[in-house]
Computed example of a mutant assay.
Amino acid sequence: MGSPSKALIPVTGVVLAAHAALLWSLPAADIQPQAKDDQLLMQTRMVEIAPPPPPPPAPAPEPAPKPTPAPRPKPAPKAAPQPRVPAPAPAPEPAAPESESNQALASDTQSPKAPETEANSTQTASAPEPPAPPPPEPEPAEISDGDTAKPMQITPAGSAPLPPGTPLPIALPGGATLEFNASGQVKGFNYSAGAELQWQHDGQYYQARQSISMFLLGERAQTSEGLITPNGLQPLNFIDKGRKTQSASFDLPTGKARFSDGTADAAIAEGVQDRLSVFLQLSALMAAGPERYPQGTVIDLTTSGARSAVRWRFRVGATEALELPIGSVMALRLDKLPGQNKSDQQGAIWLAPTMQYLPVRIRLTQGQDDFVDLKLKKYRPVTQ
């Protein structure tokens, strides 16, 4: 067995031969030797840089003084959310809104666009102001039911009330007896009856009596009597006779209406009427000058019963054709308007020009269900 060095000789020769074959197979590189002077020598050395000194510790900040709390403002009422406005389409056709409550107006597209910010990035449109309603017809000044000390007040349609003391012409109808068919309801009981109005005067004093007679129920009668003045009727006594008799007396010099049942006195003034004379006073006003009271004119006056006095308000209406037991009659309608006291009477009265403006129909309601309706059946003027 040979030595190890001799065994390596053939292996070394094979390796050298393989390297020679590899080198000869590579292409020749274009390498030019550099001059000795052109060669750069680079030397490097390590330099140790000392770290910067640490910064001095910052002093602790002084505590800021506590600000004085401002008073908390009252919260503003929440505004109703506005609808989001869609971007307008090019040249849209105008469309009618479905309803006034859901309209939305887009902002003016010709105005320069403001820069978008967080506050105005979402545009909203303000709701349009609703159109102003048409002005209502002028109404007379409100008079409370308790203002019984005020004189009669006339408010022509569309005008201010006439000044107190304005002279009003009067034309009292001549004496007459009027018979009516009466129907109505009292506390759920329907009835029909006969009624009569007797009216007479001598130019200085007057008397009026109205009665309603019902079978098995007897008669109820109201009587008014008093003076005739340049302003019309001035009642002195009013009597209401039914199951019991009650009355009221009127003392204009002291401005008091006194009641027989002991109720406190009521304040009154010129123009006061009772619940029967009031219809005849309206007849005298209309007969003297119907052109002074165009449709819509309101007449306010104190009207007293046997236990209390309130303000009654009548509004002049149109002339209507009525079919009554006496036949067809043209009559001027005056509506009795409701007062503040819901239990007070309301209704209407019709005055016939062909019968001296005497009432040919009277309808009054009391509460929700009770009413009485008188329709003229016979008219008999009294001959002097």
Rank of each mutant, 00 (worst) to 15 (best):
A221K: 10
A221T: 12
A221L: 06
A221M: 07
T223Q: 15
T223G: 03
S224H: 04
E225F: 08
E225S: 13
E225C: 01
E225I: 05
G226E: 05
G226Y: 03
G226L: 07
G226C: 02
L227C: 00
L227Y: 13
L227R: 06
L227N: 08
I228L: 11
I228Q: 02
I228A: 02
T229N: 03
T229K: 04
P230F: 07
P230Y: 13
P230E: 09
P230A: 05
P230L: 11
N231W: 11
N231G: 15
N231L: 09
N231V: 06
N231H: 11
N231Y: 11
G232P: 13
G232W: 14
G232E: 13
G232T: 14
L233F: 15
L233A: 10
L233C: 07
L233M: 10
Q234N: 10
Q234H: 12
Q234C: 11
P235F: 09
P235E: 13
P235K: 07
P235R: 02
P235N: 05
P235D: 08
L236A: 13
L236F: 12
N237I: 11
N237H: 14
N237W: 10
N237A: 10
F238N: 09
F238E: 09
F238L: 09
F238S: 09
I239E: 13
I239G: 06
I239W: 07
I239L: 14
I239S: 10
I239V: 15
I239H: 08
D240Y: 14
D240N: 15
D240A: 09
D240H: 14
K241I: 03
K241M: 05
K241D: 13
K241Y: 03
K241H: 05
K241Q: 15
K241F: 04
G242Y: 08
G242C: 07
G242R: 08
G242Q: 02
R243K: 12
R243L: 07
R243I: 06
R243V: 02
R243M: 11
K244H: 10
K244Q: 13
K244W: 10
K244S: 15
K244N: 12
T245V: 14
Q246M: 07
Q246G: 06
Q246K: 12
Q246C: 00
Q246E: 14
S247P: 01
A248F: 06
A248L: 01
A248Q: 03
A248E: 01
A248W: 07
S249T: 15
S249Q: 09
S249G: 13
S249W: 02
S249N: 07
S249C: 00
S249E: 04
S249A: 09
F250R: 00
F250K: 02
F250P: 00
F250I: 01
D251I: 03
D251N: 12
D251K: 00
D251V: 04
D251F: 03
L252G: 01
L252P: 05
L252N: 05
P253I: 02
P253R: 00
P253S: 03
P253H: 02
T254Y: 01
G255A: 08
G255N: 08
G255C: 12
G255H: 06
K256H: 12
K256R: 15
K256A: 05
A257D: 12
A257M: 08
